[in-house]
């Protein structure tokens, strides 16, 4: 890719991204591009650096070098909350919801309004908020559990709640780290249905091991290996790439 001649249509442009932990390069000179409304799945063996890539994009880990352009902003210079406000949402591998708060309160906190200290002091739970919370709650199958404290939810429900918390933020780029891991078969099906619904009208970056699931949703697949791209393209292309077969799919 020629630097300085960046096509406008890319939502996210990751270029020459490197991060090293005490000399160990978890991500090594990585470049990839995500378009508007594209569903991109990242696969790769354990320790390939998949989660680290998401950490780098959302600001949880600071890059050693390289750049991450999102809508013309360099995310490597922004703080986590500024990255969220710029329109990037992130779901963690293990469900992270607020267990001492109710489902309603969990969703309400994620509602993109009153995010400053004084904004949150003067925040009013008005009609817009309530309607939006109820709408999302319905989507994530938790409409009748709005008053339930989150610590009473099952593992799958917590995952949905976290997805709901991202939905209510209405991000332009949604990043999901193994959204169906640890779910029962029926929960898995429901989640796939949920994801298929929410990935419309936005770009999504997903890490997933479930190949069936990947095939269902992916527009494009990126295979990571030892912090570098092994292969990239459609599922069909990646599946038939001998390098990929050797390190990953073949097992």
């Amino acid at each position: 890719m020629i630097i300085g001649h960046q096509p406008k249509e890319f939502l996210l442009a990751v270029e020459a991204l490197t991060v090293s932990f005490d000399g160990f390069k978890a991500v090594n000179d990585l470049s990839f591009y995500v378009e508007e409304n594209e569903i991109r799945v990242i696969i790769g063996p354990n320790g390939a650096g998949k989660t680290t890539v998401l950490d780098l994009i959302c600001g949880k880990t600071k890059a050693t070098s390289g750049s991450i352009q999102f809508r013309g902003k360099d995310l490597t210079r922004l703080k986590e909350n500024e990255i969220v406000q710029a329109g990037v949402g992130r779901k963690f591998q293990t469900p992270s919801v607020f267990e001492d708060l109710t489902v309603f309160e969990n969703l309400e906190i994620s509602f993109p309004r009153g995010r400053s200290v004084f904004g949150s002091l003067t925040f009013q739970r008005d009609k817009t908020v309530k309607e939006r919370v109820e709408e999302v709650a319905e989507m994530i199958f938790l409409k009748d559990r709005l008053d339930t404290y989150a610590d009473q939810l099952s593992h799958g429900q917590k995952q949905w709640l976290e997805i709901g918390m991202l939905l209510i933020q209405d991000p332009d780029l949604l990043m999901l780290d193994e959204p169906v891991a640890g779910m029962s078969v029926s929960e898995r099906a429901k989640t796939a249905e949920l994801l298929n619904r929410i990935i419309k009208d936005r770009s999504v970056l997903v890490i997933e091991h479930d190949m069936k699931f990947v095939e269902d949703i992916a527009h494009k697949v990126t295979v990571l290996h030892q912090g570098q791209i092994l292969s990239e393209g459609t599922m069909e292309k990646v599946k038939n790439d001998p390098k990929v077969i050797e390190v990953y799919l073949g097992h």
Binding site: V97, V117, S120
Partner: peptide, 22 residues
Amino acid sequence: TKLGRILVAMREQEDRVRFSGY
């Protein structure tokens, strides 16, 4: 206020609060 709930949220899942844009 919502600030009170954010404090509770922060106590248990600091990162989640951060990645909710606060």
